[in-house]
């Protein structure tokens, strides 16, 4: 019964963060706008590459409709998978709220996992599902994209979820830096660019040299964006999917264990004086 009780406790945080995504109308509108703008700009950029390239019909294995949907999907998934874990830890430490969090008889790391899930759920409802549906309709009916199958769409859901858990684990680890320095803006920006680039959110990873692609295959990054998007688009073989899921699970465990160990050391730096 203990796992059920534990799940019940942490589900409160999931619910709270799920509700928080709907707290402000302006915020929802800006997410939609952000995702849409990124998708449109990437679409136009790749349209120019295809048009003014030397007549190539595919680049790094992507036709233009595929590239268009890839860029739309990665932009939307980037918004839906936005995981503020590192940012929240930095804020908690800076504002001294970390103290209040530590007075609760639950795990701070667990809280963040639960909160990230709630945030993901809310964002998927608000922007993920509508925008992905719209992007797919545009790519399929506007540009003649083929190869989208219902089972791939279903498989993309757990892949996205694993991507979220990975992003949360990475965020939790890097968030610990906030215990050491207040200059977190630079750290968080660097982390964001780094993860986006290596996860295939900016360009498909198939554009990278093959050696780099192989090396990246051993890291957690492709599982964050590239894997779920490629599964959705039917660009992965069952073997690649199985390997991708196994790699994701492996890294989720490793990063969370490392995060927990680092956190144990970090809390010793909570040395706030007075009020």
């Amino acid at each position: 019964m203990k796992p059920i009780r534990t799940a019940k406790i942490y589900s409160s945080f999931t619910k709270t963060n799920f509700l928080l995504t709907f707290a402000y109308r302006g915020q929802v509108f800006l997410w939609l706008l952000g995702g849409l703008l990124t998708a449109v700009m990437s679409g136009l950029l790749w349209w120019a590459v295809f048009k003014f390239g030397d007549g190539a019909t595919s680049i790094a294995g992507f036709t233009y409709p595929q590239m268009l949907l890839y860029m739309i999907m990665s932009a939307i998934c980037g918004e839906a998978l936005y995981c503020g874990t590192a940012d929240e830890i930095a804020r908690d430490v800076r504002n001294g709220v970390i103290g209040m969090r530590l007075t609760k008889p639950i795990s701070y790391q667990g809280q963040h996992v639960a909160m990230a899930i709630g945030n993901f759920g809310g964002r998927m409802i608000v922007i993920g599902i509508p925008m992905i549906t719209l992007g797919t309709i545009v790519a399929v009916f506007g540009f003649g994209l083929t190869g989208i199958e219902w089972y791939n769409v279903l498989l993309a859901v757990p892949a996205l979820f694993l991507g979220l858990l990975l992003k949360n684990a990475i965020g939790f680890m890097f968030g610990q830096i906030a215990f050491k320095t207040q200059a977190m803006w630079g750290v968080l920006s660097m982390l964001d660019v780094f993860v986006s680039f290596l996860s295939g959110a900016i360009v498909p990873l198939s554009l990278f040299p093959s050696g780099v692609q192989t090396a990246l295959g051993y890291t957690p990054f492709p599982s964050v964006i590239s894997l779920p998007v490629r599964i959705f688009m039917g660009m992965c073989t069952p073997y690649e999917i199985a390997i991708g899921f196994a790699t994701s699970l492996f890294w989720i465990v490793v990063l969370n264990v490392l995060g927990a160990l680092w956190y144990k050391r970090s809390v010793r730096h909570v040395v706030v004086f007075g009020g």
Binding site: I9, S12, F13, K15, L19, L20, G96, M100, P105, G275
Partner: peptide, 23 residues
């Protein structure tokens, strides 16, 4: 702590209490 709060600023008060019920 008089200078810190344990409440979730963006949520209605009842939601924070529901959360603590779980915690």
């Amino acid at each position: 702590f008089g200078q810190k709060t344990q409440l979730w600023l963006d949520l209605p008060l009842t939601e924070t209490y529901d959360l603590l019920k779980g915690v």
